[in-house]
Design a protein around this nucleic acid. Structure first.
Lengths: 153, 153
DNA sequence: TTATATTAGTTGTACATACAAAATATAAAT
DNA sequence: ATTTATATTTTGTATGTACAACTAATATAA
């Protein structure tokens, strides 16, 4: 009747609580995958999140900030900061319309589209190579499903 | 032979590149699960990461910072900041030994252990309720496996 | 045994992100 | 038509996290 909560001899403590914890694993994955993505997006001069933001704006000219924040699952205040930066770099453009803000592509932003797609592709190829294509597809799908469930409180 | 890259009528753009992207999903999950974890850890006065850190230190008194950072999959510089904060709150204690630093529990840190465990348990119960126990176990395991693969470059 | 390399930790700086409160604009209710 | 409520965005502030450069200590090599 041994108690796994007590340290084993030699200072080996039981740390299964870490390996079994979704908080811990989710953040670990997020750091690992973000690092890889940043390497592949480096050529675009953008971090991956900004790349995806531009792609959405290019594909939905005039989208509101509210909708953008929802699509990206970030808060409106975070999105404001992102758009600030991209506007400074002339990669997107704001048009205020009453109480909402519409976001439009710019020449420069549209011109980056292909580079961003290439970065996405090589990033995807890289992680599929590392963890296997089937595992990658499954993992994304499972994560998406669970995220949706967690978000409804 | 329609091209999914073009906007559909009505301004509906194809955004499958987001849903299929592991970067995007991993970060979405991380935000959702961190938020839930923070709610459950609020009673301890700590964020979840600090809670786990204290648990490790309590269970492995005198552990080096290097090893702690490895166990948590964070960089040494980040760990330095964490230990700084916990030391200020008298929840752990540093002892310099040559070029390494050993981290020890304190009375106050040990006294928090049960509260931290309770928070972990209720957090775990909460996410298992939301996404299902089997799914949760599977997800953690798959994420751990993939993280390990991504970390080896 | 002095010079050089390696290792552990810290510090400066930067970025992503959130929350709460404020600002602004529209919509609803009296 | 004025007041009140609601919705969108912004701003102030705080936290987690990383990288690069630095410091200090040990280990290796000459």
């Amino acid at each position: 009747m041994d108690n796994p909560m007590l340290d084993a001899p030699g200072g080996q403590a039981d740390e299964s609580f870490l390996r079994n914890c979704l908080f811990f694993n989710a953040n670990r994955l997020s750091r690992a995958v973000t690092k890889l993505a940043e390497e592949h997006f480096a050529q675009t001069g953008l971090s991956p999140m900004y790349g995806y933001l531009i792609r959405i704006v290019n594909g939905s000219p005039g989208i509101t900030q509210k909708l953008l924040a929802e699509k990206l699952y970030i808060t409106p205040s975070t999105l404001t900061r992102f758009i600030d930066k991209l506007e400074t770099k002339k990669l997107v453009e704001r048009k205020v319309q009453g109480k909402t803000v519409l976001v439009y592509p710019t020449e420069k932003g549209l011109a980056l589209e292909n580079q961003i797609r290439d970065a996405s592709k090589s990033f995807k190829a890289a992680y599929e190579e590392l963890i296997g294509q089937a595992a990658a597809v499954m993992l994304s799908a499972e994560i998406e499903k669970s995220s949706a469930l967690l978000e409804e409180h």
